[in-house]
Design a protein around this nucleic acid. Sequence first.
DNA 1: CGTGTTTGACCCGCGC
DNA 2: GCGCGGGTCAAACACG
Length: 292
Amino acid sequence: MNDPKDPDLSNDSAWRELTASDSDFFYRDTSNILLSDFAWNLPASSGFTQTAVVPSSITTTTTSKTDQPIPPSSCSSSAAAASVTVTEVSTNFNNPSAATSSSSEDPTENSTASAAQTPETPKKEKKKAQKRIRQQRFAFMTKSDVDNLEDGYRWRKYGQKAVKNSQFPRSYYRCTNTRCTVKKRVERSSEDPSIVITTYEGQHCHQTVGFPRGGIFPAHEPHNFTSHHHLPPPLPNHYYYQELLHQIHRENTSLPQLPQSTTEDGHVAVSSINPSEEGLLGDIVPQTMRNP
DNA sequence: CGTGTTTGACCCGCGC
DNA sequence: GCGCGGGTCAAACACG
């Protein structure tokens, strides 16, 4: 609110990392990293051209110099070919507020609150019983001309609100899976209308439903994440981030040539992440997830 | 008819 | 306590 760039992010404890600076937004100006890398599936047909990822527990700054278009429906190949350059990743997985929100709050509460409602339940009582839960959130800043980016999940719009200090309304979506409590908000940046800020809240308890052409992870690429889809819904959210970074690492190491550069703000681009470097992955990627 | 969107009303948290 | 603003609900509506 005090920051016109993200008007409402500052008043939410979940956004403390995000609002520290602009770089906290994982804004990838020209990169081709796909949301599929983070268990979100974004086909090129969705119309987006540039993406950014903001796990609320990760502070990341990136730079990349590729302008190649995103190949449609080829998440794995495009991801492998993507020029992913991680310049700075500071892990905050020990964020007390984040840990609290994920561990002590029952993600099913939102859905059960409505599912358990009987038709004769007075509206007020419903509302009272329904505690407003904040789950961990992360946002994508996406340069796109379409608001609702396709990410492999089906979303049902349940609200739209005008946002103060922004000329663009904010749309509210929730996953159409009745047992899934994931929500997302979509709004355009008031500063740069070409940028769509998509904020995800919660974790999907199911796989993607919409894409016959791929899903989250390609079948030919065995992935640790798939094996964890059997887990109950309330996965620790940082698992996504672990996976995120793991993906980035794998992609980087698979790249024959990686750009190295120094960002404008002085961050030195790191073209690969050595899993042996405990400084980063030691904190966030379990040994079992690392490549030998 | 099923599914998704629109939109006004309502609720809630927070700052003053 | 009050007002503001964000978030949600739910009826009406649109669409395939």
